[in-house]
Amino acid sequence: MARPKEFDPESVVDAAMDVFWVGGYAATSTSDLCAGTGLARSSLYNTYRSKRELYEQALRRYGERTRTEQAELLAQEGPVREVIRGFLLRAVDTQLADPQRRGCLALNAAVEVGDADPAVAGLTLADFDTIVATMKALIERGRATGELTSGGDPEAQARLVHAALTGIHVVGRVAGDRARLTDIVDALVDGL
């Protein structure tokens, strides 16, 4: 008779996500995952089969968080510029407050793995597309209320917001200067 699991698989995925977020996929060892999750190697592999499968589950969990955060962002009331500015400034503050300067897990995966792994590429693109869809909806809302009057395709502008966000994560990994990062936010939002 098999013993029941003595751990919560969802909590293990959360812990593994943090381990991958710090070390990336290639540099994260099974020992790192065991230490980060508190599981023995046998439990880890019996439940998740491979490091690769656990990485994919961690990226899925990260995507779930992104979807939740973006839904909350869409529900915010008030001027659209301030909603977008607040979203980007939270990214700045989060990046600068993180002693490990981890950035965005999806962006890190895209840079590290790229399109060499179609499943990972699909998960990162889905994460990016969630943010772009939210920004597009906010931009369209701002245009409908007359707050945003600049022309151009709302989807293209939403992609520009996402590009600014990725820039914040990348620059924030090496620069601790808040003004450098808020300049990105201000220039982007003023251009909307």
Rank of each mutant, 00 (worst) to 15 (best):
A75K: 12
T47L: 00
L88F: 10
A116I: 02
R143W: 13
R67Y: 01
G103N: 10
R61V: 05
R101I: 03
V92N: 13
A75D: 14
A121Q: 02
A110E: 06
A58S: 15
T130C: 13
A91K: 10
D98Y: 04
G78T: 10
R102G: 01
L125N: 06
T66W: 05
L73E: 06
V83M: 07
T47M: 06
N108D: 10
I84T: 05
F87W: 14
A144Q: 07
R52T: 11
A144W: 00
T47D: 04
A137V: 00
S42V: 10
D115H: 08
L105R: 04
R101A: 13
L96E: 05
A144S: 12
P118Q: 03
A75R: 07
G63T: 06
V120T: 10
Y45E: 01
D98I: 10
V83C: 11
E77L: 00
F87T: 04
G146M: 09
K51T: 08
A119R: 14
N108S: 14
R61T: 08
E72I: 02
R90D: 15
L73D: 12
G142S: 08
L88H: 05
Q95C: 12
T68G: 08
R67M: 13
L74Q: 09
V132M: 04
E82Q: 15
Y45G: 06
E82V: 06
L107G: 12
L54H: 06
G142Y: 05
A71T: 15
E72Q: 15
D127N: 15
T124W: 00
D127K: 01
G78E: 13
A109P: 09
Q57H: 07
P99Y: 08
E72S: 08
I84P: 05
T37E: 03
T47K: 01
Y45P: 02
A119N: 00
R41W: 00
A91H: 04
T130P: 03
L125H: 10
D93S: 01
V80W: 09
L74H: 04
R101E: 09
E72G: 13
A71E: 14
A116P: 01
F128Q: 09
T68H: 10
G78S: 14
P79I: 02
M135I: 06
L54C: 03
T130R: 06
T145E: 12
T94R: 08
I131K: 13
A121V: 02
A119C: 05
G114W: 03
T47P: 00
Y45Q: 05
Q95I: 14
P99N: 06
R49A: 11
L59G: 01
R60F: 07
A40T: 08
Y62M: 00
A91T: 08
R85Q: 11
Y55H: 14
A97P: 00
V120H: 04
R141Q: 10
E140F: 06
G122F: 02
M135R: 06
T134M: 04
L125S: 01
G86Q: 07
A119T: 15
L125T: 07
T66V: 15
E140N: 05
D129L: 09
R102W: 02
A121T: 00
T94Q: 12
G63E: 08
C104Y: 03
V120P: 05
A71V: 03
V111N: 12
R67F: 10
R61M: 09
R52S: 07
E82A: 06
T68F: 05
G78Y: 08
A121S: 14
T66H: 03
Q70I: 11
